[in-house]
Amino acid sequence: MVSKVEGIDPRELQSLQLYLNEYRQQSEIFSQQLALLEEGRVEALAAIDAIHGIKESSGDTVLLQIGGGVSLRARIEEPERVLLNIGAEVVVERSSEEAVEYLKDRLTEMEASSKKVIETLEQLKYQMNEIARRLEAGYQQYQMQQARPIPDEQSG
């Protein structure tokens, strides 16, 4: 990375601008990842609540959402047995306790991943600020250079 601003070259400014754009794109990707992780976390927490809720009030009627705001009344036949999506388009039958355990493990992993993404985002933000600061100083210096008369022309 370019580290000095004295005797600024327009190509240097251009490359700094490119770095800044690149970091911006990366930052957007990481922000999207963070949003997805948060979505997954909220979903897993809601699923744990639902498993507990169904177990506590077994036999009660639940509303089965079929989309478009339409629901059907349903009864859970076996609240102790749930079907769990384990990824790679595979669903397995497990006890509700095992499913909660699985979801809790996933939550721990998602939280650890979120922490890493936040750290990366902070680093990116710091680097972006650094580049933006250098760019601003560089542009100012470049403008001053442009405004200054060329010494050779003056003496000749």
Binding site: L83, I86, A88, E89, V90, V91, V92, E93, R94
Partner: peptide, 18 residues
């Protein structure tokens, strides 16, 4: 990960695939 998870599942449990 799914393979590992599946190995822990008792044989009598139902398994579905898309």
């Amino acid at each position: 990960r799914a393979t590992e998870e599946l190995k822990d599942v008792p044989d009598e449990n139902a398994v579905f695939m898309s």
